[in-house]
Nucleic acid binder design. Sequence first.
DNA 1: GTTGTTACCTGTACGC
DNA 2: TGCGTACAGGTAACAA
Length: 253
Amino acid sequence: MPELPEVETIVRELGPRLRGRHIVSVEVLQPRITRHSTVDIATALPGRRIHDVRRHGKFIVVDLDNGCLTIHLGMTGQLLFGSTPGPYTRAIFTLDDGSLLYDDTRMFGAIEMGSARVDRLGPDALTELSPEALKRKAHIKAVLLNQNVFSGIGNIYADEALFRAGIKPTARNISKPRAQKLLAAVDEVLREAIEHRGSSVSDYVDTEGRRGSFQQRHRVYARENLPCVVCGTPIRKIVVAGRGTHFCPKCQR
DNA sequence: GTTGTTACCTGTACGC
DNA sequence: TGCGTACAGGTAACAA
């Protein structure tokens, strides 16, 4: 499931490969993936030149000579160079020097013209964040997952950051010192994950089909009933904000 | 405006 | 082996 570190890894690979390239044609094999687009990308994109590729939260933004294209990988989206189309290929971008496939088994991802959805997001989680933004009544885990507060954090890194900060996922209205500690943990865990090219938990791979390795460093996520790496207490799993949530009942208060 | 719940979607794991 | 069911979690839409 691509969160900020996985998308950052992909964007770093896409940039050098796409900058300056021209889009020759686009074939949309599954119309559902363009459900958010008010413009038909198959007719709008051919002939356009790619200026740059950047990221905001979990969104990939491809800057063109006449606007931009936004890609969200959802749960299972993949962008692959030099790959053969398969049963889950949802779109094929033919460029002047090759092709780029968009594969997505569950089709939670989306491709659209413009940046309407990106414009509504909160600040990127890797930028300077204000602890005041975390001052909310909802469970702190739900606050971290709220992309309008700040964008890029998903279920894995929310659990990992809360563990490092020693904060229980169900805490509410946390104090400023605790919020500052949490923001530092968010920054630390995201940067560490980027160094390891993200976490490959289900089927995340980069543009060359390679897996990340940060899942080997998870301290709580997907470690239910295993001993806490700090105190040995079994890691518990509960549901918070409708998501599987892993934490150490002793280390996190 | 804020918060919580549900739907969408399909592969995988599990029990029978 | 084959079938049915639960689960995983990204965002959007809806209800309270």
